[in-house]
Design a protein around this nucleic acid. Structure first.
Lengths: 220, 220, 220, 220
DNA sequence: AATGAATGAGTATTCATTCAT
DNA sequence: AATGAATGAATACTCATTCAT
């Protein structure tokens, strides 16, 4: 029972905080694992019930449909994905000089998200697989990103551009290059080649060095 | 019949070149579209038959199982994905100074793969979605990549590293950074935000500039 | 519900005694009837469902495959077929002089099996039709026959041979002649010519007379 | 081509004598084998085509339906089954004292049918399996038996009954006992226990001895 | 809340048969 | 005569969901 703590943590962003029974957690855990392994469409509710150790009907007592079960996994994952940007103190931290350089910011985000990816990898897999096929999820992502992430990220980028620290690319391009460089590492590291022997610390250093050089303002 | 030319081209890497009947092409086209839209597992053979305008039994005359149909799509896509590296003249082009700089090489790959992605986007979606769930596909990719892409790429990187043009990162890291930077653009451009108004030419310039700066040897 | 008593009786030899729900009995009854009429391979599960008055899925909730359903019919039938020999008191009855002559034994078996055949004819038809095509069923029959029937039968034959009552044929031949004579009647009576007007009592008398004369020791 | 002689022989009783092409024989041979192995309903026409080495359509050029193919096998088998009784000289042979005793007659039938069973076993299996499920076949059998076998057999039995050689059972009973005794041996020998080590000569002697003693008139 | 038997629409696949070549 | 691609109805079996207990 203690084992499911990671799940409770993942879920703590969803509104219905705290109301998860033991069986409900077992169901969610089983569903995450199986969706990650075989995909949502290829996983049957009876398999989930079996792995969760509950009766078939029990799943539907908690989630009206199979899709509701997917959304119950995917929504908290989405929120956790952008968690740092949701925190109220986040912007303050940046502008009150906790981050003297863009690199400090990147480094903080990197480390924070590295832990996140490692911890919730199965849920993240589910999220990224299913987003392609479920328009609602994609919509949710867009809304959350535009409302909570983009604006803050933009201000940060503009702040360091004004200080002449990073190149005068359009903000969107800087954000995109930052995000795809970090996400590109995570994708390679955890999904495409998880079995390769990674020196995570060294690869992070190289990647951040690459990113900062890539974004550095010419002549600076 | 003329419409399916793109399909025939996509398929031309598979060994059984040229033996595709009209119905077979219709089936493949319908399957690619639907797998891209809803995913392999969520697409039924009866839907494919309907969209292809053939009887359901006809699908199974050409492909013993639904999975065979998937592989018939995914295998040529894999091969086309790494097509430039499969060409015999490719290495020559690089070392006989067609590419004076790493940037020329990157630029050529970029343009070539840009056309490819635009043309075969649905098939590529299918490939990248399903690779996660079908171990055989992932294995195929690994084999093709290691045998045909990695060795050639490595020589190119080492060549330009020796000439002091790019940083002394491990070859694997250079390859990864190059690939994820390019792929990161394509993913954002065509999959995550296809509806955004992209200035492809400008974004390519920026991204390549970012990549070259990121990889440039310090002090060079 | 009362009607299915014959079925419950047939099934009482299978280990899972007593756990048959009403729907399960309906399914078994329908399956026996249809397999007997058209054969296992020519009977579809949807027809069985229809005749049993249940949904098709219900069949598969109780029997994982169509073949499991066949075995659920055939195994108890096999056991009931050799029922008298499975009874513990059986050997005793013979040797403690309940049967003074081989003829008494034959007569008892005949009457007992006559009732059995009349009662369970459809299940028996299924058994004998399908044994030809399913190696597992044939194997089961061999095992049950050798373990439970052959040894006891052999002792009985040897007992009456020693007493000079029946001919000194090899035991196997005596058993075969006895069995095929009885079975030959049942086959003709119930399967080949069920519509002929039989005088069962008289035909039994003649057949037993024929059998006893055929087996009588010369000079006795 | 030479191999199929047994087939041509089997077929020579059917009216369309002599018009069998090579492919047609291959189809019939394949069909007999597969029907015997798996049963008519469980054998697909495509399997038959494959084993016969012809295209699927070819079967239907020769036999309008799958059932026609079955009948093409079963009808000659039926006729060959009762062949001796169909011969014009047969009755004569008996009454012109070629058979001095009923035993001679039985012995001749036995040997003749023994060869027949050995030669055409697969076709016979098909016949006996499928008769249970196809009313037309059963009807055919009844007609042939009543018209060609029963009458002649009856005369023979009555002839020997008048001569006091065999018991005064009803003729039908004598016929039934004779037939089931012989058929009981064949069934055990070739179908139920084909792998047992049989001493055919000795078993025939015993069985005929049993049969003759069983039928002998008391006091004779 | 939890169960698990029951459902019936849906699934991938097979089949006997047709027909243009 | 022979082929084999094409058909669409049928097949065994699975599924998400419901509901009485």
């Amino acid at each position: 029972m203690n084992e499911e703590q990671w799940l409770e943590e993942l879920l703590k962003f969803s509104e219905e905080d705290g109301k998860f029974s033991e069986k409900q957690l077992k169901i969610l855990e089983a569903a995450i694992e199986m969706f990650a392994e075989k995909g949502y469409a290829a996983t049957s509710t009876s398999e989930i019930a079996k792995r969760a150790g509950v009766a078939e009907g029990t799943i539907f007592r908690h989630y009206k449909t199979k899709k509701d079960l997917l959304l119950a996994i995917v929504t908290p994952t989405l929120l956790q994905s952008v968690a740092p940007f949701l925190a109220k103190e986040f912007a303050k931290e940046v502008f009150e000089h906790q981050y003297e350089h863009y690199e400090d910011f990147v480094r903080t985000v990197w480390k924070n998200r590295y832990k996140f990816v490692k911890k919730y990898l199965p849920a993240i897999r589910v999220f990224w697989q299913e987003i392609a096929f479920h328009a609602e999820i994609k919509k949710q992502l867009e809304v959350v990103f535009m409302e909570h992430v983009y604006e803050k990220f933009k201000k940060i980028v503009e702040y360091f551009q004004e200080r002449g620290e990073i190149a005068d690319f359009p903000v969107e391009s800087v954000i995109r290059l930052t995000v795809t460089t970090i996400a590109g590492f995570f994708a390679t590291r955890f999904i495409i080649m998880p079995d390769y022997e990674w020196d995570d610390e060294a690869e992070m250093e190289r990647t951040i060095q690459f990113l900062m050089n890539g974004l550095r303002k010419k002549g600076a």
